[in-house]
Design a binder for these strands. Structure first.
Lengths: 250, 250
DNA sequence: AAGCAGAGTGTACGTTGTACACGGCACTAG
DNA sequence: CTAGTGCCGTGTACAACGTACACTCTGCTT
């Protein structure tokens, strides 16, 4: 499969699936491999996503997968863009509704495929599905008179918040699926831990605990999203916006 | 080392280092193992943190580590709480300054130890250092007349934002350290990718690109933190606060 | 003097991604 | 009709990982 090559993933993601090899000679296909891999990851997380496991669910040998994908890294790129393809583009309209829509689309994507948040995003090849969704999000904040770098910052802030809260959700969900033990049961089993949560050591936490603050938690996503959008509104409707440039490259 | 036991990590983290075995018979110690592991992870990320590698930097064999730490999972718990120990407690004072302090402490912790954000937080045993820091953060928002679950939500929102933006930073930094290739060089090498970024397909992104929006990016942390705190301020100073409860358990 | 407990070692196993050489099939060129 | 060519799926093999287990060696307690 095309050997090693800096641009393998680019072609895989952006180019129209080659010339579908007019004869349906192959029993397996790239799409089927990607689909099976997503199914495995959905059910058991990235940790369980091995080439052997994917092949097994398809009823082929491990090495057969390498006829259709160059390697695991590129398979992940394809999986990520495939699930972006399941989301809807943000429709044109007022900025706040648009950003909320964008956030909710990502949120449901993360809920359906929590393994997305177990992956590094650094140097992952962006695919066309992810990019067109982001482009649509840029569009709804493009008519507010913001500078281009402010447009990027606004959309990025929303994305980063959703990824942040999504990650804790995802880790919880996947831990439950992998172990079969519910979050509550697991923490209850750690009986020796709670003995150390004394009012002298952790006054606020024990107070919050005894007044029931942990029994009726607020929805982290809903609460946080409202706050972030409020904060962006303050910025967007301000007269003179402060400029905060990045100082270092990292 | 105490075999398998649900509460191994609890004792390791919360109990005062056992009875230091009156004779300093051991050349190695738990603290030295943890310290060496942190150094390896700092320099090369979690991917390079193997028991063999840690032992090697200490000049011992792999299996010698297991005399001092029950296993890799518990070693990670110890590493995490050790770096929390390097941060300062949020001092009492006005809520906004306090939350900003808390956010900046976490931010510098993440910058110094980016591997923290490569780790799952789900079901990681919390240690005393992390918990007392969080307790101090709760304290600064505890006098605002918020309900206990709102206190939790406010502090959590800040934490989740910092973790979200921190993660992209961390992934970038670690990728550079591991590969020795700068982010910019890496993306420039992906020449075939940019050919697909056409104005027809990605109108906003190409426009932002050509107007220099990517050349002078805003600082994601500074920009986002200001927005999040603004949003929390809107909430805190509101007359009647909306209640958003979590509906499901996940 | 005997023996015991704890530190560090060495070997071995199962799991991972994937390189590589191979066998069988379905076309096409002569 | 036959020989050739190239792709599909297979099987074996290897290096790296965490760690179980059975040692050896040392120095203290009886």
């Amino acid at each position: 499969m095309k050997q090693d090559d800096r641009n393998r993933s680019v072609r895989l993601l952006w180019e129209p699936d080659a010339q579908v090899t007019r004869e349906p000679k192959a029993a397996l296909s790239r799409a089927r491999v990607v689909e099976a891999a997503i199914k495995v990851a959905d059910a058991e997380g990235i940790g369980a996503l091995t080439m052997r496991r994917v092949a097994e669910t398809l009823g082929f040998t491990t090495m057969s997968l390498y006829r259709h994908v160059p390697g695991k890294s590129e398979l992940l790129d394809l999986m990520v863009d495939a699930v972006w393809g399941e989301t809807e583009h943000t429709p044109k309209g007022p900025w706040r509704a648009g950003l909320e829509f964008y956030a909710r689309q990502m949120w449901s994507m993360y809920r359906a495929h929590p393994w997305l948040l177990q992956l590094t995003n650094a140097r992952r090849m962006p695919g066309p599905n992810a990019m067109t969704r982001q482009d649509a999000a840029f569009a709804v904040v493009s008519e507010l008179g913001l500078k281009p770098e402010e447009i990027v910052a606004v959309v990025t802030t929303v994305g980063q918040f959703v990824a942040g809260v999504g990650r804790t959700m995802a880790d919880r969900v996947l831990a439950e699926r992998e172990t079969g033990v519910s979050e509550e049961d697991w923490w209850n089993d750690r009986d020796e831990l709670w003995e150390h949560f004394t009012p002298e050591r952790l006054p606020m936490m024990t107070h919050i605990w005894t007044t029931g603050g942990y029994e009726r938690p607020l929805d982290e996503f809903e609460f946080g999203l409202a706050r972030v959008l409020d904060g962006l509104e303050v910025f967007i409707s301000a007269e003179d916006r402060p400029v905060v440039r990045r100082e270092t490259c990292l």
